[in-house]
Amino acid sequence: MNDHARVILVADDDEDILDLVCLTLEQAGHETIRAADGEEALRLVLRHRPDACVLDVVMPKRTGLEIIEVLRDTEETSDIPILLLTATIREQYLPPGVEKSGKGYLRKPFSPRELQERVAWILDPRDR
């Protein structure tokens, strides 16, 4: 796994979940950048250009969906793979750019193993 170590931005306003996601991804050998709200997440993405983002949908300041929109509209960030964490959102409301096959988002609650698998998949879909 270490061969595939990447930088991943994780954004969630719930600190416990933020810790959980980062911990899980670090266990998988990735580096994480932490963001506690939407604006911070967007700022950090633009600054650090991570290999992937794991975004909570419902966050203060900017939602995960809004961040996706900005990233998709910005040339430098338009192909950063994104995994949405959602407690509520319905498949039909997912914005364009999010995989609707069920792999581009993860429903809360999720198991750490599932999270690791999904992140691996968005980083390199051909692996699957």
């Binding site: 959980l20 899980t24 407690a87 809360k108 609650p109 999720f110 750490p112």
Partner: peptide, 15 residues
């Protein structure tokens, strides 16, 4: 609101 705490309970439980 229901799922967010469950996420932590299940996630940390698994860890």
């Amino acid at each position: 609101e229901l799922r967010t705490p469950l996420t932590s309970i299940i996630g940390y439980g698994e860890l």
